[in-house]
Structure formats: C-alpha cells, structure tokens
Design a protein around this nucleic acid. Structure first.
Length: 887
RNA sequence: GGGCUCAUAGCUCAGUUGGUUAGAGCGUUGCGUUGACAUCGCAAAGGUCAGUGGUUCAAGUCCACUUGGGCCCACCA
C-alpha cells in the first residue's frame, strides 16, 4: 500500500472524486449494442422548479440500484434523464420572481413573459439535475431531455393533431375545475379533494304568486344563488309535488325561476329542494342541459362576482357569500344554518379552493384510449409491484372521464389550433384549424386573418409521451427501437392517474406497445408523525443535508433498507446513522484486509474458490464463509429481481457485518498469512464490493480501486457468478455449533464476572463421537475467540465440585470455579432455565400425543418435533446434574 | 358511500407459500480485551404479535367482525 488509509471513511472527498471520474470516463453512457440485451428506465422527470427532497432521493436511488445492477449483469442499461417544464408550477414561480420587481405578467405580455420563463429555466432549471448527481445517479446525461425541447414539442403537437384527426380531441363549453388564483382550468386529477368544515345554509325562496309562502333550499355555496335558474324537487316528493311548474322569485335579484322535477333529487337530503345553478355546478349543469335551463354565470375568472351579480359585483366570492347571507337574514329569508362537512377540490399547485366554472375548453375523449390500457394490464403485459395497485389503476381507467387539457397560462406547449376570424364570423366551429405548422392562410376562405389559440396544453399532455418522445419519436431511430419499450418504471403511487395510466394509454395509441413492462411503486416518505414530508409543512429532512453530514452512500443505504415493498416510510434523522456506520464498517474491514494482504499470495487467476475439486484443501472456516457468501449472492440476486430492495440491503448488511466481520475476520486473524485464507478473504471482499455497489456506489468504487487486482472502474465489472458447489449446509451447521459454543462460553464468563483480560479453562463433554471428532480440529478457533487456555474434550460427563456448567444441545460446557462465586445466583439461573425447558417439554409432549397432529402433519415435521423433544429431555437431565454439582 | 393499507420489543420496522424456543437497527443496562473499526467489541434485559371469534393437527401468518391510525376514489346540493 502506497497510501495510508484513514481510520474513518470520509465520504465527501470520495464522492466528488468518483462522480467526476465516472462522468469524465463516460461510464454512464449506454449504447445500442446488438450483442447485449437492453435494459432501460426513463426517469420520472422532475420539475425544473424542483428541489431534491426525500421522495426524489428514494425514487432515484431505487432507479440507480436497478441500473447499476443491470449493468453489472451485462445488460446495456440506459437510464434516460430529463426534466419537466411543469406549466403551472413554473409559471407561478416566474410570476413570483416578477412580483418582487413589481411586475405582473400582464404588464410584460405573453412573449416577454415566456422569454423570462426560459431565462429562469436556464438559470435554475438544472438545480435538481445537479442534485441528482450528488445522489450518485448513473443517468446518461448526454441524453438529457426537456419536455419543451424542440423535438419533444414537435411530438406533442403531432399527438394533438393525430388525436384531433381521430376525433378524440374536441372543444366544448363545460363545467371544469377552475383555479381562481392560477386562473386556469384544471383536470379532475389536478383538483384534489380535501375535507372542509362548512355549513349547510337553508334559504327561503318566495313563490311568485304568493310572496308570503316559501320553498326552502339547502346549499353549501350560497353565493352561487345569484346564478340560480331553477329549483328542483323529486317528482315523488309529496311536499312539493303540487308546486312543480310554478315559479319562485329568486331573492336579492328578484328573478323568477321555475320549479322543476327530477328524480335525481334526494328527498332525504336538506329540505329536499335544490337550487339549480347550471353555470356553477356540474350536477346543476347536467340538470340545466336536461331541462333546457338558462346558464347564468355570476363570477369572474378571478373568483370575484361579475356584473350579473348586481350589488355584489366586484366582491370576492367569500365576501360575497357573507354579504348575501347578511342580506338574506335581514330579509328573513335565511331559515337556518347547520354545520356540514364537505369535500371540495383544491388546486394541486396552490391549494386554492377550486371553483366549478363553465368555460370553453379542450378535451380528450379517453374511453377509446383506455381500452388497450385495460386489456394490457389484465393480461399481465404490464405488471404492478406491489400487485395491489393493479386494482387502483383498473378502477380508474375503467371509469375514466374525458380529460380537460387546455390551460389558460402562457408557459407550456401552445395548442396547434388556429382560428380564422373571417370564417368564425359565420360559424364559430368552421373557423377552427388544427395544424402541425402554422398555416399561412385559411384553407376554407383563403384569407390570412388567422390567430393561434391562446391556451397551452396541460403539462401531463406532454409527460404522457415521455417513454417514447424521449427517444425522438415519431422519428424512426435505432435508440427507440433498441431501448423502447422500456423495462421498469419506478415512481410513487400518487401519480398513477396523472402519469402512469396515461403513459400506458399513449404507449398503445402511438406505438402500439406497452411503454414499460414493470411498474415499481415505492412508498411515500412521511415524518415520524405519519405526515407526508413536505417543505410547506416544515417537517422535511433535506437529503442534501444528510449527504453532507452522513454521506451519499449512507443516505442511499438507509433509505433503501427501510423501504419495505410499497409501504410508506416513516423517517427520522437518526436512521441515517446506520448507513454511515455501515460505510465505516466496510471501510475498516477493507482497510484491515488490504493492510494484511501479501500480494505475492494472490494468484488471482487460480483463485481457490473457483475450483470445485479443491474443496478439501480449504479449512472449514474458509469453506463456511464461501458458503455464506454464495448463499447471500443467490438471495440478493433473487431479491433484486423481485424488487425487494430492503431485503437485499439488509441481507448484505447482515452478511458483511455479522458474518464476515464479527465471525470470519476474527476467526482468521491467527492464520491470516496463510495462503488459502488470503485468497478467500480477498475474493470475498472483491466480490462483495460488486454486490454492494448498486446500493453504495462511492465507497465500493473507492475500495475497489485500492484492490491490487482491480482493473478499471467497478461499474464495468460483472456480477459474481453463483458457485453453488460452495454452498454447504453441513459446513454451515457445524460452524453454527461452534458459534453457539463460543457464545455460551462468553456468556458463562460474563455471568461469572470473569475479568475479560484473563483466560479460562474448559472441559467440553461431547458424547457423540462423530461430533467430538469434528469439533476437535476447531479447538484453536474456540480457544481463540472464547479466551480459553486449556480446552479438554471428554466423552462422559463426570460431576465435579466447583464447576459451572452449561448445557448446549447435548454438549456439556464445564468451567472450574475460582475465587468467590455467588452460587445461589447461579442456582437461581439454572432453576429459571429448568422451568422454561419443563414447560416446553410439556408443550411438545402434548403435541406429539395428539393423534390429530401425528396423523395429519407431514412426516418430517413430526420427526423434527420428536428430535426436539429428545434434545430437551437431555438438556433437562443435564441441568439436574449441574445443579447437583453446584450444591 | 366504495376501496386500499397499517397495528409485532421503549422507538422505527422485518417476518417469504401457515410448521424450531418470533428477529433486526436504534435506545437501555453491565463489561471492555483479542494485529481494522468507540461511527467499535462482548454480554444482558425487553414481546399474551391491537381485541374477539372462526378455519386447521398447527395461526404473528388464513377468514370474519371490532377498535384505533394513515391513504385513495366517489357529482348528496
């Protein structure tokens, strides 16, 4: 070793060094290689406004594990990176920045505003990309895409035009979710329903021909009453039957409205009479259409009341509500107010209460697109992991509603729709032109008076093309052919509807294929209270802070080790200590191995473990660790293939710490210069580094580079081959017994409070001859780790005074007592053990005397139970003997 | 209203198709020694597996219900 290794692992210097090297050496780049199988993942593109949070950290760590693992397994593994323009989110951020300068977006105008947004994107849009690099992500950065790249935008336009031509896109006047703050339409998915503590207001509407009499209606949104155009009752309702067809006077506005009948009205709810506001409520809209009612809109897009709201015009909707209630109360028309919980949509970007609003928007007809997306999942062409999400997905796709895709913002893909002003004079519909490129003149009238649609497309209308548009679809090309369909999608269940389902639909519609085979859905990261971790709640643990405090590998390992498949993650900061300590453990074990390695011992090529026939040349300790290593390799491989990342991580942790370090390295210390031991020790470390590399890329590379046999980056190595011939249950069982023996002796010493520095003598009685002969060669190990001077093997136990004896299966471990010993305390302990064994024996006896059990249980289970009983009885007998010895 | 999910050691959680005496990390207690590691080692304490009932030779594991968390979907105004 030319360089001293420090006592502690220092992640900071290591991480930046290796990430730079990997980038410089182009190790993230995946090529189209016909000689290899392709494995590909497209990143869920983070918003350009995004800042790395724990959700990203988990999501991208999992993807990185898959990519690094598949690369080691010999796939041409591509991780496609990119960012999302995030229409509303980005527009809001840019507007906020402008507000600091005292500018509104309207002051700038569309063009200048969009220019400012691009500027913002250039400045801050890759923040998250740099943060992903700190996480160690092995993305092919040269292929970085953005949802508003020119090619990508062309794909979006292409898709719009194709759907329009198939009549799957239409324009119409409907009630949509409107965010009065963002001043744009939202899709149903973008309006997240939150429970609100509100009131049910009972309003009295007087009859037109008899103003002394009233019908009472119940509403949660009294301000919309200004737009009422009817009152509806159930035709079967005896209370109101006689009034159907009569007129009421809408208070405050004094407009006559008709009483209509519809069996959709629930007689039980409220007063049984419903005010109908077709322009401000989706149900009322349907009623309005059905009964030919007038649609009166009383609100501006910003949520304030408009000129049709009479004296309330100009008031914000909530102020208008208060004023209207006051006025109704003053007029004696507010019958009562009862508390009422309701759930109402809130803008998923700014959390403002969404207003159902009648407006002209563009929609995608989803039912035809859903068909193949349903079939593919049902047939298992696409699999969800964990499978329970399949049901959630299917439930949504099978009940899919049309998708409102137009947004009244400026940042995004402007719709490829043009209006001919001339044609629209005669008929609004005939003036609509949908075209891939801006037409110079109207194809119908030939005039050049064309304007482009102001609206942009929903951000998700570009994201749903991600898996193929990222590969320059619709252009035919080698990448698309080779890497698409992609292999695995890794994301959170919160965007199954927004994104996953729509990608599946787009995949089938535009490429006739499923865009991916597996969908792995990880849990949501929550704080220790179970709340979703988010910046706005102030409960977030910043991954970058964890990286600088504990290291990236520690962050990654800790996160993954607590992510049970699909289960939410409750996180507190101290979890990351485990990862940091583990990295340090790997570091120090490697340091120990490397400083004790005699390179001349290593004929790397003729490594002992690859030859099946040389078994007997290795002693059991080396055979044992090889057996354990290959068992670990086999299981970890299975677990990674099955997306059980936490199980793989915890297995790797337990193997390295408790088997390799705690037992193996301690056992071999006295024989560390022995050639076979050197080879095995080195080989295990070398292979282990590859297994841990997907989880902890930095430390594994750092140590890898210090191995005498290392050539090139660990990223370019291959996953170890499983050598089943090394897996030996017999060797494992024998070592297990040695460990139990050592533990028992340590335990005795601890119980007897023997000075740790001193050494003891042990008489070990093993009646089974074969076992005795097997254990005798291992005496050296036992003496070494249990701190024993003289270890004497006996065939038959002889009761002796002044001995402390423990029973382990059918072994007797006897230790001479020296000095003053609290015999009473030892006896008490033995009594406790005796009592425990007695009750267990009783249980077993009951079990075995039960004919139902002996008749029905499998033979090997019964035999196992019998063996146990025999062993227990032996133990009991021995405990009795020991007791007598102590007295 | 429908659906999903969770309840196991003081805390955070594992526990594969039912089959040893139910595990880990952290925390706690005691002791610190062996040719890497105090971000460490050794030992110990700590559990009626939320409750009730059922299926079974056998239930933490399967079923039903109950209680208490969390989440999603749905147009009762």
């Amino acid at each position: 070793m030319t360089e001293e290794l420090s006592k502690q692992y220092n992640p900071q210097t290591t991480e930046t060094k290796w990430y730079r090297t990997w980038e410089a050496e182009n190790l993230f780049s995946a090529q189209v290689r016909p000689d290899r199988l392709a494995y590909s993942i497209v990143i869920p593109p983070p918003n350009i406004t995004g800042i790395l949070h724990m959700g990203h950290a988990l999501n991208n760590t999992i993807q990185d594990i898959l990519i690094r693992y598949k690369t080691l397994r010999g796939f041409s593994a591509l991780w496609m990176p990119g960012t999302d323009h995030a229409g509303i989110a980005t527009q809001n951020v840019v507007e906020k920045a402008l507000a600091k300068e005292g500018i509104k977006r309207q002051d700038l105008g569309r063009e200048k505003f969009v220019a400012r947004a691009w500027e913002w994107k250039q400045l801050y849009g890759s923040t998250i990309i740099n943060q992903l690099k700190k996480l160690g992500c092995a993305c092919d950065w040269e292929r970085l895409r953005f949802t508003m790249d020119p090619d990508y935008s062309a794909a979006v336009i292409e898709v719009f035009v194709r759907l329009y031509e198939k009549k799957l896109i239409y324009q119409g006047n409907y009630i949509i979710n409107w965010c009065p703050r963002c001043q744009t339409a939202l899709s149903d998915e973008e309006a997240s329903h939150l429970e609100l503590q509100g009131n049910l207001y009972y309003l009295k509407y007087p009859f037109k021909d008899n103003p002394q009499e009233f019908i009472c209606v119940a509403t949660t949104r009294p301000e919309t009453m200004l737009g009422d155009t009817a009152v509806a009752v159930n035709p079967k309702d005896k209370r109101y039957k006689k009034y159907i067809g009569k007129f009421l006077i809408l208070p405050l506005i004094n407009r006559p409205i008709k009483i209509i009948a519809d069996h959709l009205i629930d007689m039980q709810f409220g007063s049984g009479a419903v005010k109908v506001t077709p322009a401000h409520d989706p149900n009322d809209y349907a009623l309005g259409k059905k009964h030919g009612l007038e649609f009166i809109q009383v609100m501006h897009p910003d949520g304030s009341m408009n000129e049709l709201a009479g004296k309330y015009s100009g008031l914000d909707r909530f102020k208008a509500r208060a004023a209207i209630l006051d006025d109704l109360a003053a007029a004696g028309l507010l019958e009562k107010v009862t508390p009422h919980t309701l759930s109402a949509g809130h803008c998923y970007r700014c959390h403002t209460l969404v207003e159902p609003y009648l407006s002209q928007q563009w929609f995608v007809k989803m039912k035809p697109l859903a068909k193949p997306a349903i079939a593919a999942v049902k047939k298992g062409k696409i699999k969800f992991h964990p499978a329970r999400w399949t049901k959630v997905y299917l439930n949504w796709v099978e009940n899919i509603q049309d998708w409102c895709i137009s947004r009244q913002i400026w940042w995004g893909h402007r719709m490829p729709v043009y209006y001919c002003k001339n044609c629209q004079k005669h008929d609004p519909q005939s003036g609509v032109i949908v075209s891939r490129i801006k037409p110079l003149q109207c194809p119908k009238c030939g005039l050049e008076d064309l304007v482009q649609e102001q609206d942009v497309l929903d951000t998700w209308f570009s994201s749903w093309l991600w898996p193929f548009a990222i590969f320059y679809w619709p252009k035919e090309n080698a990448e698309l052919k080779y890497f698409y369909p992609t292999s695995t999608l890794v994301t959170g269940p919160d965007i199954i509807f927004f994104w996953v389902a729509r990608m599946i639909m787009a995949g089938f519609e535009f490429t006739q294929q499923a865009p991916f085979k597996d969908v792995y859905l990880h849990g949501t990261i929550r704080d220790s209270q179970g709340k979703k971790m988010s910046k706005s709640l102030g409960n977030a643990i910043d991954p970058l802070e964890i990286i600088s405090e504990y290291g990236t590998d520690a962050l990654r390992f800790s996160l993954v080790s607590i992510t049970t498949q699909g289960q939410d993650v409750y996180l507190s900061k101290d979890r990351f200590e485990q990862g940091r300590n583990f990295a340090n453990k790997i570091w120090n074990a490697s340091r120990f191995i490397l400083t004790n390695l005699k390179t001349e011992n290593l004929n790397i090529d003729s490594s002992a473990d690859t030859k099946n026939t040389k078994n007997e040349k290795l002693d059991i300790v080396n055979r044992w660790i090889l057996s354990r290593f290959y068992t670990t390799l086999e299981k970890v491989t299975q677990e990674l293939e099955g997306y059980k990342f936490n199980e793989a991580a915890n297995r790797l942790y337990a193997f390295f710490w408790h088997e390799f370090c705690d037992w193996y390295l301690e056992l071999i210390k006295p024989q560390i210069d022995q050639k076979n031991t050197q080879v095995v020790m080195y080989k295990i470390l070398e292979k282990y580094l590859k297994l841990i590399h997907p989880f902890m890329p930095f430390i594994s590379e750092e140590i890898w580079q210090r191995l005498p046999g290392a050539q090139g980056s660990i990223m370019r190595q291959s996953w170890p081959q499983l050598q089943k011939q090394w897996i030996s249950k017999q060797d494992e069982a024998q070592m297990e017994l040695v460990f139990n023996l050592i533990n028992a002796i340590r335990n005795m010493r601890s119980e007897l409070e023997i000075d740790p520095a001193s050494r003891s003598d042990i008489q070990l009685t093993v009646s089974d001859q074969a076992l005795r002969l097997a254990l005798m060669p291992l005496a050296g190990y036992i003496k070494h780790l249990a701190r024993i001077d003289n270890l004497i093997f006996l065939e038959n136990y002889i009761v002796q005074k002044n001995q402390y004896v423990t029973v382990l299966k059918d072994l007797h471990i006897a230790m001479p007592l020296e000095g003053i010993v609290d015999t009473a305390a030892l006896l008490a302990k033995i009594d406790l053990k005796t009592a425990k064994i007695l009750s267990e024996i009783k249980n077993k006896e009951n079990m075995l005397s039960n004919k139902n059990f002996t008749n029905r249980a499998p033979a090997e289970i019964i035999q196992g139970e019998k063996d146990k009983l025999v062993l227990m009885r032996e133990q009991l007998k021995k405990l009795e003997v020991i007791k007598n010895g102590l007295r």
